[in-house]
């Protein structure tokens, strides 16, 4: 039997939601030019929004408010800045203020190397605001899990997707090594690079355990996360978004607080993502992760 890709999984979940559960899908240009990387099905329940970002997001939140469990597609995560107002100021606040939910499912799609306002990874911003559940699924199984979670709760959910994951058919498992020197925690597209980095590091005699993160908020430091760190005593969180004040730093802090061990953070640099090489400021790849870990392991202040 042919395995489903992440894109197939998203499309079939959506089709079922729209055709069997009275759901809606809204977004700009969702029913043309590849149907959002083949993640949107051709079926009833799809509403093309005008190119009015704030109004469009408000319309989507309004429909969620009356029980349609709307899937809201944002083709590039950078557009979350424009679309953010109704999400942050209304959808995320109404449950706490008024005890009424607006459970909107926001598919925010990240990409790489296509310029300053189409390459962003912005899940960190939404982790900052109360009221959201935030996740970054990269496998078919993870996508099914976060969809189930969405249906079991009534909170707005920010789903930080990444185009690089859409063709993926495999689940990505944690990897534990005996006597690890460091535990690497990977988020979003960096999850496809961290294994390669670990192999490069192994060649240099550095043993890495790898923990894959797709739940970003609520973030709970459970045994799966803490145990490898207790053994390696050093960790690093790697994210596709900006490192400064981002998910990598926040999660590194949470892990460090929970275990007492040093956890470093690695993300994109504090620079604009330009369109052309070598200024694209891409997410950490295997080589960059390798160099960052080497630098960390060679530093004098490994212990807190």
């Amino acid at each position: 039997m042919e395995r489903l890709t992440v894109a197939d999984t998203i499309r079939e979940i959506t089709r079922n939601h729209l055709t069997e559960h009275n759901g809606l899908l809204m977004g700009q240009a969702v029913s043309a030019v590849g149907w959002v990387n083949n993640t949107v099905p051709d079926c009833p329940g799809i509403i093309e929004l005008p190119m009015s970002d704030v109004a469009g997001a408000g319309i989507a939140v309004g429909s969620a408010l009356v029980g349609r469990r709307t899937i809201f597609v944002i083709r590039f995560q950078d557009f979350l800045i424009l679309n953010g107002s109704p999400l942050i100021f209304y959808a995320a606040k109404i449950k706490e203020l008024h005890n009424r939910p607006a459970p909107i499912f926001v598919r925010a799609i990240a990409a790489e190397g296509i310029g300053p306002v189409h390459s962003g990874v912005l899940h960190s911003i939404f982790m900052h605001f109360p009221g959201f559940r935030v996740c970054a699924p990269m496998t078919p199984g993870e996508y099914r899990a976060i969809w189930k979670d969405y249906l079991e709760h009534d909170d707005p959910m920010i789903v930080s997707e990444h185009r690089i994951s859409y063709g993926n058919t495999e689940e990505i498992n944690d990897m534990y090594v005996p006597d690890p020197d460091i535990t690497l925690y990977a988020i979003s597209s960096t999850r496809f690079e961290v294994g390669k980095a670990a192999r490069l590091l192994a060649d240099d005699g550095i043993r890495c355990s790898i923990v894959h993160l797709y739940w970003l908020k609520p973030f709970v430091v459970d045994e799966r996360l803490s145990h490898p760190l207790m053994r390696s005593r050093i960790g690093m969180v790697i994210d596709s978004g900006h490192e400064i004040c981002g998910a990598a730093q926040a999660i590194a802090y949470a892990l460090s607080e929970a275990t007492g061990y040093r956890v470093a953070a690695l993300g994109t640099e504090d620079k604009t993502k330009c369109l052309c090489e070598p200024h694209q400021n891409k997410a950490p790849d295997a080589q960059r992760i390798y160099l960052a870990v080497k630098q960390l392991m060679e530093s004098d202040d490994l212990v807190l």
């Binding site: 319309i59 408010l65 100021f89």
Partner: peptide
């Protein structure tokens, strides 16, 4: 439905609610 204080925010929300 409660307003949250950003003027005009209720208009797209109301339109979406009417549609939904």
């Amino acid at each position: 439905f409660g307003h949250h204080g950003l003027i005009g925010e209720n208009v797209p929300l109301g339109v979406g609610a009417a549609m939904g």
